[in-house]
Design a protein around this nucleic acid. Sequence first.
RNA 1: GUGAUUGUAGCUCAGCUGGUUAGAGCGCCGGAUUGUGGUUCCGGAGGUCGCCGGUUCGAAACCGGUCUUUCACCCCA
Length: 455
Amino acid sequence: MAQKPSIPKGTRDFSPIEVTKRNYIFNIIKTAFQSFGFQPIETPSFEKSETLLGKYGEEGDRLIFKILNSGEKVKKADLQALEDGNLARFSNSLAEKALRYDLTVPFARYVVQHQNDITFPFKRYQIQPVWRADRPQHGRFQEFFQCDADVVGSTSLWQEVEFVQLYDKVFSNLGLEGVTIKINNRKILSGIAEVIGAKDKLIDFTVALDKLDKIGEDGVKNEMLNKGISAEAIEKVQPLFSFSGNLDDKLDQLKQLLSSSDEGMEGIADLEFVFEAIEVLGLETARLDLDITLARGLNYYTGAIYEVAAPKGVKMGSIGGGGRYDDLTGIFGLKNVSGVGISFGLDRIYLVLEELGLFPETVTDKVDVLCINFGEKEALASMKLIKVLREAGKSAELYPDKAKPKKQMNYANKRNIPYVIIIGGNELENNTCTVKNMNDGTQLEVPFDEVLTAF
RNA sequence: GUGAUUGUAGCUCAGCUGGUUAGAGCGCCGGAUUGUGGUUCCGGAGGUCGCCGGUUCGAAACCGGUCUUUCACCCCA
C-alpha cells in the first residue's frame, strides 16, 4: 500500500457498476425535471472569488475551495495582511478564483449576466459537481453532485406547490418510499423573532431552534441564552417547544403567537396555501410536514424552506433542500427577481438506495452475448454474427484473444454475460453456431443465418 | 476549524504484556479437464504491517509527526 497512488480525502473513484447506478438516479431526476418544464444549463466549475465569497455566511466562506493564482499573479499576495494576522484577507489576495460551492449562486450570477436573453419566468435545472472544504464523514464529501431545479421571475406560490410535487415524483420513481418533505417559512421565523423582540438575533435564534430534535428543549434554550437572547424572550416562544397536534392545530397555535406580526402572519398564509393545494392534489409516496424548527443556515432564503429527510431508520442527513430567495440576484445588481428552487443530493440518495437495496436488478452494465474466439477464421465468422446481433439491438462482443475456452467461459461468467456463442471448426463446417445459455447451461446449435431465433 | 477514531495480502479481518522466516477465509493465477463457466480436488503467486522519524539489543505492536477512514461538534447535500 505504501507507494500506491491515492486520491484526496473526501473524493471518490467510481467503478463501472457505480457509474451505472448513478446514471440510473440521474436519469430519473432529469426526466422528472424535464416533465415539470425545466431546461438544462451548465456553468463553469470555478467562478471568480468575488462571485462566491460572502454569499454563504462566514462559515460558508471558510469551506470554499480557492484556486491559487498562477504565474505573475502570485505577486498580488497581500503580505501586510499576513503580517497583521488577517489570514482570510491574505488567502483571498492569493486567489482570484474559487470552485463553486453550490449551484444556486452561480445560477443567480447566470441570470443577471444573461438577463436580456432570458424569458421570465425562467425554469432551469442543473446537474453538476460542487466542492466544499469540509471534513468528510459518512455521506459527506468534498466533491459531490447536486441536482438543482429553480424558477426565477415569479412570486407565485404555485411554484412552491410544484416543488413539493417534484420531490414526491422523484423519490416515488426511485422507489424510495417514506421520505418526509419538511417545509417551513422564513417569514414565520422572522415573525417569531420580531414578536419576542430579538429581530437582530434572527440567525442565532433560528440556528438554535433548528437543533431542537438534537439537543432538546433545554439545550436550545441554553444556546439562545448564550447567544444573548433574553430569558423573557425565550419565555414567549415557549409554545414552540410544546408544538403538537395536527396541521390545523399547529397553524392555530402559530397564529396566536404571531398575531402581532404582519410578516409572521404572511408566512402562515403562504404555508396554508401550499398545504391546501397539496391536500387537493395529493402525493404519491412522500409526506409533507410542517417543521417549525427547520431553519437551514443559508441566509439568502426569505420565504419557503424545504428539507427532505430519508425514510425513518436510515442514518443519513438531509437528502435534499431548498427554498425561496427574494433577492439573490440583487447581490449581482438585478432587483425584484424572486427565485425558488430545490436541490437533490445525489451522493446521499445513492447511499440510501444502496442501504435499502432499492436499485433495480436491471441496472447493470451487462453485455448480452460473448463470442468465443477459436482463431482467425472462426473469429471472422463470429464478427459477422456480432454485426447482426448488434443491428438487432443486442450488445455483443468477441473475446479478443484466442485463449482456452475455459478461460473465455470464465470471463463470460464473471461479467455476468447471459449468452455465449461458440463458433469452432465444427460449426464453421456446418455453417452453424452454438448458442449457450449461461444461466441453465443448455446449448443449442442453430444455422448461422438463424442466430436470432436462439434468444 | 475543535475533540476523538481507524489503517496488516485484491477484499474482510486475526496477530498475546515489544522477541525467529507476519497468518486465516474469500478472491486471483495454474493444473486435474489442450471445444465448455458457476461445484470439487491439488498446487502457486501476492505484504518494506499507511507514510516519515524516534525509543530499544530487537517494533506490525511503544512514542511523535503526517496522510487517510469513521464519529461527535461546527456546518451542511
